[in-house]
C-alpha cells in the first residue's frame, strides 16, 4: 500500500503525470460515451440516446430544483459535463489500481485532493463570475449583506467553507473507498485464506463504491447548482 506519486517538473511547474494521465483517460471515456450515444440521433430516441437524454433531463431537474430554467439553462452544459466527468472519474479507480516502481499510476483522479479541490474551486469561482455577470457588481455585493448586514463575515467564511467541503467531500469519499479496496486487495493477494476471506467484503465494497461514486457525482452537481443559485438569484 505504500506508494508515492510520480512527479514531473516542466517549465518550472510540477506535474503529477499519473493525474494527467487519469484526467485524460476520464475525458476520453466521457467524450467517447457522449459522442457515441449522440450519433445517428433520431426524433424517436433509441438505445444510448435515451440514456443521454435521461442524464440531460436529470441534470435539468437538478437545476430546476434550484432556480428557474430561464436563469439556470446556461448551466445545463456545465452540469451534464460535470456529472459525467465526476462519475466516470469516481469509477475509474474501482476495478484496479496500478503501481509502478512504488508509484501510483492508475487511480480515480478524484481520489487526488488537488483535482477534487480544483474542481470545487472552479465551480465556486464560476458561481462568483456568474453572480457578478448576472446581478451586476452592486447586486453581487448585496448578496453578502442579505438577509442581515451583520451576517456578512459569515457569508465570506461560507464561501471558503463551501469550496472546502465541496472538494473534500468528493475527495474523502472516493479516496476512502480506494483505500479500503486496496486493503482488501492486499489481503486477497496475501494468502489463499485471505483471498477467500476478502472476496465477499471486496464485492460488497465495490458495489457500495459504485453507489458512492454515483451519489457523489450527483451531490457535486447538486451543490454546484445550489451555490450557483445563491449567487445568481436574489430571492434567497
Amino acid at each position: 500500500m505504500e506508494h508515492e506519486n510520480p512527479e514531473l517538473v516542466l517549465f518550472g511547474i510540477s506535474f503529477n503525470p499519473a493525474n494527467i494521465m487519469m484526467l485524460f483517460v476520464t475525458c476520453l471515456i466521457v467524450f467517447i460515451i457522449a459522442v457515441l450515444s449522440t450519433r445517428r440521433m433520431q426524433m424517436k430516441p433509441t438505445g444510448m440516446q435515451n440514456f443521454m437524454e435521461w442524464i440531460m433531463d436529470f441534470v435539468k431537474g437538478i437545476i430546476k430544483n434550484n432556480m428557474d430554467w430561464k436563469t439556470g439553462g446556461r448551466f445545463h452544459v456545465l452540469g451534464i459535463t460535470l456529472i459525467m466527468f465526476v462519475f466516470v472519474a469516481n469509477m475509474l479507480g474501482l476495478p484496479f489500481s496500478i503501481q509502478w516502481d512504488h508509484k501510483l499510476w492508475w487511480k480515480s483522479p478524484t481520489a487526488d485532493p488537488v483535482i477534487a479541490m480544483t474542481l470545487a474551486a472552479t465551480v465556486v469561482i464560476l458561481t462568483h463570475y456568474y453572480g457578478v455577470k448576472m446581478l451586476g457588481i452592486k447586486g453581487y455585493f448585496k448578496t453578502y449583506i442579505q438577509p442581515m448586514p451583520f451576517l456578512a463575515p459569515l457569508k465570506v467564511i461560507e464561501e471558503f467553507a463551501n469550496t472546502l467541503t465541496l472538494g473534500l467531500r468528493l475527495y474523502g469519499n472516493i479516496f476512502a473507498g480506494e483505500i479500503l479496496i486496496g486493503l482488501l486487495a492486499t489481503l486477497a493477494a496475501g494468502s489463499f485464506g485471505g483471498f477467500i476471506g476478502a472476496i465477499l467484503p471486496a464485492l460488497a465494497w465495490q458495489g457500495f463504491s459504485i453507489f458512492i461514486g454515483a451519489i457523489q457525482a450527483f451531490i457535486f452537481v447538486m451543490l454546484t447548482m445550489v451555490y450557483m443559485s445563491h449567487k445568481v438569484t436574489t430571492d434567497h
Binding site: 516542466l10 511547474i13 510540477s14 506535474f15 493525474n19 494527467i20 484526467l23 475525458c27 483535482i115
Partner: peptide, 11 residues
C-alpha cells in the same frame, strides 16, 4: 503541484 490544477481546469 500547480501543474495538476492547471491540467484539471484545462482538461
Amino acid at each position: 503541484n500547480l501543474g495538476d490544477i492547471i491540467a484539471t481546469v484545462v482538461f
